[in-house]
Design a protein around this nucleic acid. Structure first.
Lengths: 220, 220
DNA sequence: ACCTGAACACCGTTCAAGT
DNA sequence: ACCTGAACACCGTTCAAGT
């Protein structure tokens, strides 16, 4: 049978693009070789001509989203080291928000793609240019952790409280009195009750500023 | 056939213990239902009497290591809020170092086991007892991120440099001059060259102190 | 109550073969 | 050079059946 009209030849880039699209719309679990091939109108085995194995596919997917985030971060043009790093990390964060599955995948990989090295090089350059020692810049990069790439792993993400009844609150107050008090106070203080009581954008920026402030004070 | 002498009856706890042991010794990928059953001297299907599905197994495994870390953190007896939190997080870290696969699994799970709520309640209690507002305690908990449970996701973990030749260094200096300069300077400064140039214990404590210092300054 | 055997659907991957 | 078909080993899981 002749190839369908309008069907473009496969390539590593096209495969990776389709893989990211599947993860974005249906999650990482939906990304199987067979499903990916079907989306590309091809048999599963054809993928192996462009990628040696699924591990290589996942490496490529990580590389793709990191390249996107790092490119976004690179748009930032600020001279002040704090504003510059802040802008970079927040720009990367906007990209990561579109790929909510990426942080978990990223942190489960052993090998980090080479694109991140020039990116980190730039961060170090910015800090050293602002008077930091290499030693302190090194520490800083580790302290920023995954913020440099626009995300933090949220462990403590308490449930939404819109549907929390008074009886539930009373039961909670028995077991976790301080969390309950914290929650109710935050809910009252919040102007818009539909927002919930955790705002990850605000929390990201708070933590980032906490680190930047602390580092600034350590600067020689 | 009669059950083998000395074979204890299965239980959820025994299954979870064996699962953690497999992950510890051979990694998370080796943890399959069939392999787990074999280690317990049982057929794979027997596991389903004690756990409804593999997802439940993974939830249980997460619960098990978190309980271990939180228990270790609970041993800390310090009155000063900073020393107390510091001791807790570092104690949890000692546990996590024994389960290097745990952070990646943990961050990939949707539902966090209930044990963490009392733990976070204690952290908030410590901070509010030291004069922090609930609002600030809330922010702090998010800033600590996964440090509360003793780990940070290392994205930037540059390769070991013991086997880096002079030619390699020259090539690196072209592409990532600042990283190369940082690395060579750190290597020279290090007393013990076998240590490499990243020390995750030192980095963990540096970041932790950076956050604690910053929070202390925000305290009313 | 607790465990098993056989079977099913699905996955990543091989290999030789097609065009 | 690029893609395919058939087959294999392995996985999680079901269901009816054993003791």
């Amino acid at each position: 049978m002749a190839p369908r009209a309008g069907r473009e030849p496969l390539s590593r880039e096209r495969v990776l693009g389709a893989a990211v699209a599947i993860a974005d719309t249906e999650g990482l679990k939906a990304l199987t070789m067979r499903r990916l091939a079907a989306d590309l109108d091809v048999e599963a085995m054809s993928l192996y001509y462009h990628l040696p194995a699924k591990e290589a596919l996942l490496d490529g997917v990580v590389e793709t989203v990191l390249a996107e985030a790092i490119t976004a971060a690179g748009q930032t043009s600020e001279d002040d080291w704090r504003k510059r790093l802040r802008g970079q990390f927040l720009a990367a964060r906007q990209v990561m928000l579109r790929h909510p599955w990426a942080p978990a995948l990223l942190t489960s990989r052993r090998n980090i793609p080479p694109i991140v090295y020039p990116y980190y090089d730039g961060i170090v350059a910015t800090m050293v240019g602002a008077g930091f020692s290499y030693r302190l810049a090194h520490r800083a990069v580790h302290s920023f952790g995954s913020m440099t790439l626009g995300f933090v792993q949220e462990i403590f993400s308490p449930a939404d409280t819109d549907d929390t009844s008074d009886e539930d609150l009373a039961a909670m107050a028995e077991v976790v009195p301080n969390l309950t008090a914290m929650m109710t106070e935050e809910m009252h203080a919040a102007g818009d009750p539909t927002l919930g009581w955790c705002d990850s954008q605000v929390e990201f920026e708070f933590t980032l500023d906490l680190l930047l402030d602390g580092l600034d004070r350590l600067r020689p």
